[in-house]
Amino acid sequence: MARIKSKTEEASMDIPMTPMIDVIFQLMIFFMCSIHFKSLEGKLYSYLPKDKGMNMTVVTDPILDEVRISLVYNESKPPYLAEIKIGQQSIPDWDALKKQLATIWEGVDKTDVDRIIPFKIDPKSPKIPVQSIVKVLDICNEIGVRKVEFAAKTTQ
């Protein structure tokens, strides 16, 4: 007797996963590479004066006052490696510097923009790390001082 063939030849229901995985990987790589995260980098404007330094013009009406922030190299104070001074006065830390500069800035006569006294950053050693300089610049920006200068030695 002929054996009746049972209905076992069902259509294969397996979904081929390989192309889907391939496409997903491609999309992942594409998005990973093209996505723009929120930019973490920023900048501080530090425009050089046009009429000072190498191309000096004669100053007929000099501004005699300035607020000099000195950074004295001290290796025992990482990561800034600097002792802070305003003029001759020692400042214990950055918060104190901010308070002190804010007080000075409050008392500055701001009526004539051209005659506002400059805040001068004076790194006493070339070894002072950039982070310290940027910290002072940052504090000046935060309290609203825009006229910040860098002290430098005159070179031939």
């Binding site: 973490l40 980098e41 920023g42 501080l44 530090s46 050089l48 330094g53 190498m54 191309n55 610049l137």
Partner: peptide, 14 residues
């Protein structure tokens, strides 16, 4: 300064 370039920006991060 010698090249008379005055627009300088300093890179920093928040």
């Amino acid at each position: 300064g010698r090249a008379l370039i005055w627009k300088i920006e300093i890179g920093a991060t928040n």
